[in-house]
């Protein structure tokens, strides 16, 4: 049926562990949909039949951070919400990646006000900034492909000396 049917007898191939692990990692990125506001609706639209994120192996959107390796922060992060985002990020197992989806997540966008964090990179590391207010679903797919490229380039050595981060004390309320 598949590729293996071309072999007359049981075949084998050689590759590096790194390449195999990175390839399998990048082909099934499990996103953590951190849907906060408008962008969350476009993120839902990515999962719908028209755009169909399943084509890229990421349809398993889990609302628990412990099963995910890519956090898509979709929407305006306020100061009140920031500790929650950080806590969810801390709960995700290593290795993990973050997409800051939309202008307000990346920079505060049109909300230069007292309650909006001007860019989530002030408290979580961001791997990819995605422009748009909100980005079109095709653009989110584009971001997913870009982050798959980034994941595909990782090697085991990258994570060798990674320390488990200490959990931050989360402020009350």
């Amino acid at each position: 049926m598949g590729l293996e049917s071309l072999f007359k007898e049981s075949g084998f191939f050689t590759t590096t562990i790194d390449a195999l692990v990175a390839w399998s990692r990048k082909s099934s990125v499990w996103p953590m949909p951190m849907g906060i506001s408008c962008c969350a609706i476009e993120m839902m639209a990515v999962a719908d039949p028209k755009y169909d994120i399943a084509r890229f192996g990421s349809e398993v959107m889990r609302f628990t951070p412990r099963q995910c390796d890519l956090m898509i922060v979709a929407g305006t992060v306020t100061y009140k919400m920031a500790p929650v985002v950080r806590k969810i990020y801390d709960q995700m197992p290593e290795p993990k990646w973050v997409i800051a989806m939309g202008a307000c997540t990346a920079t505060g966008g049109i909300y230069r006000t007292y309650s909006v964090v001007q860019g989530i990179d002030q408290f979580v590391p961001v791997d990819l900034y995605l422009a748009g207010c909100p980005p079109r679903p095709d653009n989110l797919l584009n971001a997913l492909i870009a982050i798959q490229d980034k994941i595909g380039r990782t090697k085991a050595a990258d994570f060798k000396n990674a320390e488990l981060p200490e959990l931050n004390e989360i402020q009350n309320n």
Partner: peptide, 16 residues
């Protein structure tokens, strides 16, 4: 009398 951008540092952010 409250500025649009708020008072810097009045609401703490989590550590990076």
């Amino acid at each position: 009398d409250f500025p649009l951008m708020g008072i810097p540092g009045s609401i703490p952010l989590p550590k990076k």
